[in-house]
């Protein structure tokens, strides 16, 4: 089946639509994936419209209403639906603004590690030889360190902050994309259609990025969703350790770090940011499972 799409060099409109329909057919068979997709789209809308939706400014401190519980509990107020934190900031507004940071981290980290990984991986898989050896040894070295520890040390070196945290996480995630791309390129490179393109006079760049790469995308897309959710988790973890986004940024991990001392007094300041992280990551992972079912022919109907 892949042969058919691979050997037709011109992807005409109907076939593309058919492929999209086939993709959606398998994706929508997975109910969890569809739920995840809709929840994710909801988060995207929430992040974009945060100033319109949030009832308060996320950094304004209402000094007279510190550590208010959510409205349904005794002492809660309807003005602060999910309560306030230790300096009187509205929890709901901070959570809504937090969506922006988490999705931003996911997008940036995935884009950086995906493009970097693809570029390096294609070169390694296409040219082989000493180039490949050097690249793979460097990736092995990065993989020899536990990823969160390496990210933590890198951020400590670069200086704490969300930007540096994203750079560090992207760097740590990159080897996975390099390995996947390289393996896929190596299997595709010997296929007939690549040889045909070569005989027809295609140059290295064209062969690498136009002929081979499009046929290697399926595992990369699945890995990209996985690294999207992992990036959110790791950035929150760095924020929690005090090395990610700095207060008063309403980033969920940073919010958790600030809330740690109140864990036995005010459950909502601890529970809600974590729940937000969990729900977001879960939605993305659900989508990832659906993508894998739809894109990976080997696992289809399993």
């Amino acid at each position: 089946m892949t042969e058919v799409t691979a050997t037709s060099p011109i992807s005409t409109d109907p076939s593309r639509r058919a492929r999209l329909a086939e993709f959606w057919f398998y994706f929508s068979e997975n109910r969890g994936a569809v739920i995840g997709l809709f929840f994710f789209l909801f988060l995207v809308v929430l992040a974009i419209c945060a100033p319109l939706v949030a009832p308060h400014d996320p950094t304004i401190q209402f000094r007279e209403s510190v550590l208010l519980p959510p409205f349904w509990q005794e002492g809660g107020r309807v003005g602060f639906l999910l309560g306030t934190d230790a300096v009187g900031r509205d929890m709901l507004s901070r959570l809504i603004y937090g969506t922006r940071f988490s999705l931003f981290v996911g997008v940036i980290v995935t884009t950086l590690s995906l493009t970097g990984g693809i570029l390096v991986g294609v070169i390694a898989g296409y040219f082989r030889g000493w180039v490949d050896t050097v690249i793979m040894r460097i990736m092995d070295i990065i993989l020899a360190f536990p990823s969160l520890l390496l990210a933590l040390v890198l951020v400590a070196v670069l200086g704490p902050g969300l930007t540096n945290a994203m750079i560090a996480i992207a760097l740590v995630f990159q080897p996975h994309f390099v390995r996947l791309t390289r393996a896929a390129v190596m299997t595709e490179k010997t296929r007939d259609y690549v040889v045909a393109a070569k005989v027809a006079g295609a140059g290295h760049l064209r062969l690498m990025f136009k002929t081979i790469l499009p046929n290697c995308m399926a595992p990369l897309i699945v890995q990209a969703t996985l690294s999207f959710s992992n990036a959110i988790l790791d950035a929150a973890a760095l924020g929690f350790l005090g090395m990610g986004a700095q207060p008063p940024t309403p980033e969920w991990g940073t919010m958790l770090a600030e809330a740690r001392e109140f864990i036995l007094r005010a459950w909502w300041v601890v529970t809600l940011p974590g729940l937000a992280i969990l729900a977001t990551v879960l939605a993305i992972n659900l989508m990832g499972d659906g993508l894998r079912d739809a894109l990976d022919p080997k696992l289809k109907r399993s």
Partner: peptide
């Protein structure tokens, strides 16, 4: 999908 630092606090 669990942020384990939060899971621990919980």
């Amino acid at each position: 999908s669990m942020p384990i630092f939060w899971w621990g606090l919980l």
